[in-house]
């Protein structure tokens, strides 16, 4: 696989659902706000996709520059666009 034809269904790592639940709870302003297990799975998947997308875009930036090591400046370059168009 390379950056252009990456298949996310081959990715096995996942976020821990419990951690996601706790983080969301931490940031809710209203203590009455609830979230169900099914919806938590959706949020976890969205966050997993953002993480993957950031890694892939930074990797593509590095390979455009002819490198096989992704450096912090590559992430910095892709960051503004990612924040604008991704979510």
């Amino acid at each position: 696989m390379d950056v252009e034809d990456y298949d996310i269904s081959k990715l096995t790592s996942k976020f821990k659902i419990e951690a996601i639940r706790e983080v969301l709870k931490l940031h809710f302003v209203d203590s009455k706000t609830r979230i169900t297990e099914d919806v938590l799975q959706l949020v976890a998947e969205v966050i997993r996709i953002i993480t993957t997308e950031a890694t892939l875009r930074a990797s593509r930036q590095a390979s455009i520059e002819g490198l096989v090591e992704v450096q912090i400046l590559h992430v910095e370059k892709i960051l503004p666009q990612l924040m604008l168009d991704f979510i």
Binding site: M1, D2, V3, Y6, K10, L11, I20, V23, L24, H27, V43, V46, I47, I50, T51, T52, A54, T55, L56, A58, S59, A62, S63, V68, E69, V70, Q71, I72, H74, V75, L79, I87
Partner: peptide, 28 residues
């Protein structure tokens, strides 16, 4: 992901993406 696409990721890169996700989770 890095292993699958055969790219090496600096440690700072992972920390930066981690920080980004942490902040994004707050917004979400």
């Amino acid at each position: 992901v890095g292993g699958q696409i055969k790219m090496e990721l600096e440690k700072d890169v992972i920390n930066l993406i981690g920080e980004l996700i942490w902040k994004k989770m707050r917004v979400i």
